[in-house]
């Protein structure tokens, strides 16, 4: 067990836990857009930056990957934290002006106006989808292209990605909900990845429950017999 203070409050955390996890467990709010416990910390959105004092030294660090230590003092409410947090969100709002999730966040951390010229993106480039696809699903169906502000998330060559099984994990994890999954006429469609796959119906209840691509993927991965795989989770 590790004892630290966050904003003056004594907090007990597990060894190896990050400051963000410790804060969340203690009910202290730290905004974060590129963090999810299922994937490795990425430290890209910079919204979770806090001031951490260990001994004599104070550092300005990302809470999502900074590991707690005994008698560490964390401040999430200093002028520096607020100033950076606000401007970073303002920058994101200029990049993606129409995301309700960002507007909500703006209310919480107090961003009143956007003073920068606005682009028309909808993706905040947090890489959550890319990392989930790679780290959790293990498929690398999507990735980044380019660098700097022309960077984007896409499938290679912006063409239907071969490895993509339309599992929808990317859609589920997207913090700003811009990877829609549609199911129409027996197909699952993910417009963003230019991909469409026929749905498989449960051999018992007849409900669609996965795509053919997913079916093949699972078959290969688990080696389970086909008739068993054709039964949905509810009917198993």
């Amino acid at each position: 067990m590790v004892k630290l203070t966050i904003d003056g409050k004594e907090v007990v955390a597990r060894e190896g836990q990050t400051v963000l996890e410790a804060a969340q467990a203690a009910g202290i709010y730290i905004p974060a857009l590129c963090y999810h416990h299922e994937v490795k910390p990425y430290t890209a959105c910079r919204l979770c930056m806090v001031e951490v004092t260990k001994g004599k030294r104070t550092r300005f660090v990302t809470a999502c990957d900074y590991v707690v230590a005994d008698s560490m003092v964390v401040r999430t409410d200093t002028e520096k934290v607020k100033k950076c947090r606000k401007l970073v969100l303002e920058l994101l709002m200029a990049q993606c002006p129409n995301l309700p999730q960002l507007q909500e966040l703006a209310q919480i951390i107090g961003v009143e106006e956007v003073r920068f010229s606005k682009s028309n993106d909808d993706c905040i480039l947090c890489g959550m989808c890319v990392r989930t696809c790679a780290e959790v699903v293990g498929l690398h169906a999507i990735g980044f292209e380019g660098r700097g502000f022309t960077r984007k998330v896409c499938t290679p060559f912006d063409e239907p990605s071969e490895p993509c099984i339309l599992c929808g994990a990317c859609s589920y994890i997207c913090p700003v909900d811009v990877i829609p999954v549609e199911e129409v006429d027996g197909y699952r469609i993910m417009e963003r990845w230019h991909k469409k796959s026929r749905l498989v119906a449960c051999s018992k209840c007849g409900k669609y429950f996965m795509t053919e691509d997913e079916f093949r993927f699972l078959q290969e991965k688990t080696g389970l017999p086909e008739d068993r795989l054709r039964i949905c989770m509810d009917c198993r």
Binding site: V130, A134, L139, H140, A141, I142, G143, F144, E145, G146, R147, T155, P156, F157, S161, E162, P163
Partner: peptide
């Protein structure tokens, strides 16, 4: 190496 990664390197 997954194509998505090769593609990122080639465009980066």
């Amino acid at each position: 190496v997954p194509l998505a990664r090769v593609y990122h390197i080639a465009t980066f």
